[in-house]
Write a protein that binds this DNA or RNA. Sequence first.
DNA 1: TTGAATTTACAGTAATTTGTGAAATTTGAT
DNA 2: ATCAAATTTCACAAATTACTGTAAATTCAA
Lengths: 194, 194
Amino acid sequence: MNLTPLIQSFVLHFGEMGSHWGINRTVGQMYALLFVSEKPLNADEMAEALGFSRSNISMGLKELVSWRLVKLQHLPGDRREYYSTPDDVWVIFQTLAEERKKREVDPTLTMLRGALLETPSNDADKHAQARMAQMHDLIDLTTSWFSDIQRLDVETLQKLMKLGAQVQKFLELKQKLPAFLGGTDSSNSPESKD
Amino acid sequence: MNLTPLIQSFVLHFGEMGSHWGINRTVGQMYALLFVSEKPLNADEMAEALGFSRSNISMGLKELVSWRLVKLQHLPGDRREYYSTPDDVWVIFQTLAEERKKREVDPTLTMLRGALLETPSNDADKHAQARMAQMHDLIDLTTSWFSDIQRLDVETLQKLMKLGAQVQKFLELKQKLPAFLGGTDSSNSPESKD
DNA sequence: TTGAATTTACAGTAATTTGTGAAATTTGAT
DNA sequence: ATCAAATTTCACAAATTACTGTAAATTCAA
């Protein structure tokens, strides 16, 4: 295959960053290669392009598939398995966010819920539980918001982001005109938090 | 010191999750211990509570301070250094997000900008650059939005999150009444994306 | 059903990361 | 300035993780 300098530097960068992102260097490079590739690649092509062993490629691909970051497909008349990344970068972004949530935050949320049900054994425990409750509520609100947002289509999401901090004006407006959003909303009622 | 079972399980969980979060087990435990502690702790107390060597604590603390996740303070009449986490979990969350952006996405954004300035050497390069441009634009929009949002105070941010997907209604409204947000906004104009 | 092509599992090794104790340095009270 | 308390650095050992080659398993065409 033989990569051009441009592609090579992109691939190497992803390899280096991989460790910061919780994947290893070779998996990072594999993803980068697929991301910029014009067509799906099979494992042998990737092994050759990156200079890794065939089995390493196999492991890495398995991991990337488990993250839903690469998809497997078959090309007509070729029994080998070909791999590629989704075309739409927004879809990629959402998949990444979902998977990270699932792996990196959901387990903690579950642990916190359990811990908050325990009976505190002393003052230190009481304080610890109060702190855990704060953490729980923050994560809960953030992840609920995230799954709300994720339901929006990409177009809408983009508009929202371009709007940026201007949403603040909307909140001010809403304060004045609470009616127009319908009745089941409770976010204006003054119970709020601690 | 001797941790209660409740606190111990919290601390151990953070240790295990640490690897998913890009910090190591001991650093994760240190952070958890400080997070639930009623008062600031010094390095010796932490070493004893967690059963780590004094030097390991020193290293870990240095890392946590570099992430701005723990702060150093001095207690009157005691020359040792005491450590604690910020009280407000929203501040913690924002700090974490800022630091992760700085370490995990800014370098990639920089690399992409550089790559997009290169002259493509062939069709493969042209395609790769197109892909990189998509990635760049996504990251750029997302991080700009993030720094916009970060300027909001915590109260407003909370309201916004509680609103969730209902912001969509605002966008619809805005479509109809583009005037009320003032003139410099271009997000409604139909140039949009590819 | 056979067998060639392909993928996967696994065991051994290499590389990297983590954690420790001892030595060196820094700090601040006297 | 001195000295003891406290912190940091560093070289090494231990543990973990990554990578390879080979062997086993699977797949699919004939």
